[in-house]
Lab assay of single mutants.
Amino acid sequence: DTINITLPDGKTLTLTVTPEFTVKELAEEIARRLGLSPEDIKDTHNGKTLDPSLTLAEYGITPGSTITLEIK
């Protein structure tokens, strides 16, 4: 299953994830792909900052969802 990550420059990154991924694991994968530190990444969905300890499923993030990435 894939989700879309909207980057600060407007580009989109597509990642393969499972509903059990935590937001922290997602940030780590994004950081790895972009050459950043996971601590520099802030993920938001529907205007809410995502708690790193919760899973994508707990936020109702499903395949095809879009998450907005902010760099701290």
Rank of each mutant, 00 (worst) to 15 (best):
D1P: 10
D1Y: 15
D1G: 14
D1L: 15
T2C: 07
T2K: 10
I3M: 02
I3T: 01
I3F: 03
N4M: 09
N4T: 11
N4A: 08
N4C: 07
I5H: 06
I5R: 06
I5C: 04
I5T: 01
T6Q: 14
T6A: 14
T6H: 14
T6M: 14
L7D: 02
L7A: 04
P8E: 06
G10T: 03
G10A: 02
G10M: 03
K11V: 11
K11P: 07
T12R: 09
T12V: 11
T12G: 06
T12H: 09
L13I: 13
L13E: 04
L13G: 02
L13R: 01
T14A: 08
T14S: 09
T14D: 03
L15E: 00
L15I: 14
L15A: 02
L15Y: 01
T16S: 12
T16F: 11
T16W: 10
V17C: 05
V17M: 06
V17Q: 00
V17Y: 14
P19H: 04
P19K: 07
P19C: 04
E20I: 08
E20Q: 11
E20D: 12
F21N: 06
F21Y: 14
F21Q: 10
F21T: 15
F21E: 07
F21C: 12
T22I: 01
V23F: 14
V23M: 11
K24S: 06
K24I: 05
K24V: 04
E25C: 06
E25F: 04
E25L: 06
E25A: 09
E25M: 14
E25V: 03
E25P: 01
E25S: 06
L26T: 00
L26W: 01
L26K: 00
L26A: 03
L26N: 00
L26M: 07
A27E: 05
A27C: 14
A27T: 13
A27H: 15
E28Y: 08
E28C: 11
E29R: 04
E29Q: 07
E29I: 08
E29P: 00
I30P: 00
A31K: 05
A31G: 09
A31R: 06
A31W: 07
A31M: 08
R32W: 06
R32A: 08
R33H: 13
R33D: 02
R33I: 13
L34W: 03
L34T: 12
L34M: 09
L34A: 05
L34K: 00
L34P: 00
G35K: 06
G35Q: 07
L36W: 11
L36H: 08
L36A: 07
L36Q: 06
S37W: 09
S37P: 12
S37Y: 13
S37I: 09
S37E: 11
P38L: 13
E39K: 14
E39T: 14
E39L: 15
E39Y: 08
D40E: 12
D40F: 14
D40I: 11
D40Y: 15
I41K: 02
K42E: 10
K42H: 11
K42P: 12
K42C: 15
K42M: 15
K42L: 15
D43V: 15
T44K: 14
T44A: 13
T44D: 07
T44V: 13
H45N: 10
H45G: 09
H45Q: 10
H45R: 13
H45C: 13
N46T: 13
G47T: 04
G47K: 06
G47Q: 06
K48A: 09
K48N: 10
T49E: 10
T49Q: 11
T49P: 11
T49G: 07
L50M: 10
L50P: 05
L50T: 03
D51E: 06
D51T: 05
P52A: 13
S53M: 10
S53T: 11
S53Y: 08
S53E: 09
L54T: 08
L54D: 04
T55Y: 02
T55D: 01
T55N: 03
T55G: 02
T55S: 06
L56F: 01
L56Y: 01
A57M: 11
E58M: 03
E58K: 02
E58D: 15
E58R: 01
Y59R: 05
Y59H: 14
G60P: 02
G60N: 04
G60M: 03
G60F: 03
G60C: 07
I61M: 03
I61L: 06
I61W: 10
I61N: 01
T62Y: 14
T62C: 13
T62M: 12
P63F: 04
P63V: 07
P63T: 09
P63K: 03
G64E: 03
G64D: 03
G64A: 02
G64V: 01
S65G: 05
S65E: 04
S65L: 05
S65D: 10
T66R: 03
T66F: 06
T66S: 05
I67C: 09
I67F: 02
I67Y: 03
I67R: 00
L69V: 15
L69N: 00
E70L: 08
I71D: 04
I71M: 08
I71K: 05
K72A: 13
K72T: 13
K72S: 12
K72H: 13
K72V: 14
K72F: 15
